[in-house]
Design a protein around this nucleic acid. Structure first.
Lengths: 230, 230
DNA sequence: ATTGTTATTGATCGCATGATCAATAACAGG
DNA sequence: CCTGTTATTGATCATGCGATCAATAACAAT
């Protein structure tokens, strides 16, 4: 317990790559840095890798500082989840506006969500479903973001009904159903992306059946699933 | 470091509800006890609640003993996952043999899987998908059990094709697809079980579209989704 | 130059985890 | 009644976590 003084280093001689102390920044700036670091960690290693020490290390800062900018880690995790997922929702919703008809919008929705380019976000969703059991703030964010997604899909379905392209009542339920299917298939792809050919095509057939659209009207590029002419 | 002898209690006087030492048992017996305790913990609190001390406490045993019966905790978790999920697969597969035709088998499959009575197992699945990222043994079990499930579904689909009830090629992909849809919808119900009415019915319509069965041929009890005569 | 504010540090606490292992005691076979 | 086997204990180690807070130092205002 005696003589635990630290060895003193002459920092003025050290190379410029090592900083003794992080530069002092605006709270807004620092908060943004921390959020960005946490976002990257979540996408690369999962939400549970968001740790005071982990985030601090990536920012290049003491762990206490990260804690200083958040009430607690649970809130940080919940916030980062919302950031990541909301960005995806808005991005895809924007993409849909590109398409003229609801039919083509729904087709693009399925195509975009199933192209495998967003598996990192899928992993976040799956982890959030589990973590939400013990992180109430996160659970609330999950429900909120699910609702946002459902609203986007429901809008497309309703537009299709109005346009006479779809034949179904209960657009809300159909929207939930489509989302659930997409999530499940993507979660599956997380573990096992082989074994299923034409993921998008099969899903399109399923959605057509549910939505009351004609066979092959979604994803016209895909081959009809009946004849074995692969 | 001196005089750390424990206070000695006269256990012969203590009430019978407190045992000084767990009864000595056969390795097979003890291993079974440990497995059962771990299974219960997993179903009640999740796979990540499977802990040396947690399991030991439930069995009424020292934590070291649990460790003694397993190479490491990762293996225990993987094994318990396989136990739980395999039991469900076999149970449902047995149920299907009750039904005479593939159409009715598929209907019962959807009905059984979507009745909400297996949400605890669904939670295990979802957690395993995430935990598999850092537990290679668990990841292997997950893939194995997914294959087992897919084989069950594929068998039904192929039987339906042979019987002329279904019109689709590529039974393996369709089986994967059905599984993914069911998993996704159940995972959704884990967080949010409201908002969707007729989960089973909508799913049935979707599967009909994918499998090429006539509208309403699956789940004949359900109302057709077109006319708003709810 | 002096002062006040506050961003930042780094050490520390309490807790939980998996793993390890010498010591103990229950039981079986002689 | 002994003796060897081994199921079982309980303490210990190293690690990582969130949280807390006095001390420090950088900056702005005076």
């Amino acid at each position: 317990m005696i003589n635990n003084r630290k060895a003193t280093l002459d920092w003025s001689v050290m190379s410029s790559t090592i900083q003794k102390r992080a530069a002092r920044k605006t709270p807004a700036e620092r908060a943004a840095e921390i959020a960005e670091a946490a976002r990257e960690i979540a996408l690369e290693q999962g939400l549970s890798a968001i740790t005071l020490r982990n985030v601090a290390a990536r920012v290049g800062v003491a762990s206490g500082l990260v804690a200083h900018y958040q009430p607690n880690v649970e809130a940080l995790v919940a916030g980062i989840f919302a950031t990541i997922v909301a960005a995806e929702t808005e991005e895809v919703a924007g993409l849909l506006e590109t398409q003229p008809t609801p039919l083509e919008q729904l087709g693009m929705l399925l195509e975009t969500l199933m192209d495998g380019s967003r598996l990192d976000v899928t992993a976040i969703w799956v982890e959030a479903w589990t973590l939400g059991r013990r992180n109430e703030a996160l659970a609330a964010c999950v429900r909120e973001q699910m609702d946002a997604w459902q609203a986007v899909v429901q809008r497309v379905v309703e537009a299709g009904i109005d346009a006479g392209e779809f034949e179904t009542f209960d657009a809300p339920s159909v929207a939930w159903q489509i989302l659930g299917m997409v999530d499940g298939l993507n979660a599956q792809a997380l573990v096992r992306w082989d074994g299923v050919s034409d993921r998008g095509t099969h899903l399109a057939r399923a959605v057509e059946g549910m939505v009351g659209a004609a066979r092959g009207s979604l994803l016209p590029g895909g081959a009809p699933p009946i004849s074995p002419d692969s």
